[in-house]
Design a protein around this nucleic acid. Structure first.
Lengths: 146, 146
DNA sequence: TATTATTATATCGTTCACGATACAATCGCA
DNA sequence: TGCGATTGTATCGTGAACGATATAATAATA
């Protein structure tokens, strides 16, 4: 039985890949109600925390490339969720800030993580295990993102 | 400070999403050498373990929808990595098996997980922590995939 | 000041990922 | 046997995700 490391069962990457997809699928019905996608929800979370941010700063925060974030932001601007504006200080930069509509979504969105954790915590994973999982993932990300 | 659960920092989903992307990025240069993408590598792993499988069985194994897997397999067939053939028993099914070229990639692919674990284990995460991480992810997937 | 390098963003083409939908083959059961 | 329900696969359209590339603004330095 050669190449045990090539079994899905034994890989770390596959469960990461799969759980990421599955959890986004779980978010979908709730995000559909708000008219946004999961990556758009990530952008909103960044902008709920920071009044104004450049395209570059957003893409760094989300660990995505700017050529992914640029069209994402343009779609969100077209939907009226945010405003993109060339910075006056440095005209290479485009600063992004939420519109009223974008800011208004925060309250509704706040319920989503609560709803999703139902049935998961503590039945499947305890609070401690969730913290453990987040910690392990953050250390992994720290290694991968350099 | 309202809505703490909406901070990227506090979410479980975001580190899952991010680590999945980052690890696929790490795979990329190695998979480029083999002329395949990460989802194609997943398909190959399934078929290295199982001589023949239906489209449906592959999509279930990878936790992907068939409308994702069908074009994936067609591209792989066009590249000469595998053969798709209507099942004789049940003509609704399409059985998929590797070509010689597809089987030949296994040996080269076997080195990739080994290379990727360098610098990660045990410096960033111990062997035990990797096992712990896989276990937590599998339990999470078990919950999400139903 | 001129020119080279860097930074920030945008554009293009390919591959995924998935919901909605279509359609043919097979199954279940009266 | 007949026929409605189910199953397996495929097609289409939209939104990512990213490498490669382009372009303009700014910074660095000769």
């Amino acid at each position: 039985m050669p190449y045990d490391q090539l079994k899905l069962e034994n890989q770390l990457c596959f469960p990461l890949y799969a759980s990421s997809h599955l959890i986004v699928r779980r978010y979908k019905p709730y995000l559909d109600e708000l008219g946004i996608t999961y990556p758009q929800y990530l952008v909103l979370m960044v902008l709920w925390e920071h009044v104004s941010m450049s395209v570059n700063a957003i893409s760094k925060k989300l660990l995505l490339n700017t050529n992914t974030v640029t069209p994402l932001l343009k779609r969100m601007e077209a939907q009226g969720l945010l405003i993109r504006e060339r910075s006056k200080n440095d005209e290479r930069r485009v600063d992004v800030r939420l519109s009223k509509a974008g800011r208004a979504l925060e309250k509704k969105a706040a319920e989503i993580p609560v709803k999703l954790s139902k049935g998961l915590i503590p039945d499947v994973l305890s609070v401690e295990e969730i913290e453990q999982l987040k910690d392990l993932l953050k250390r992994l990300i720290g290694h991968l993102d350099k």
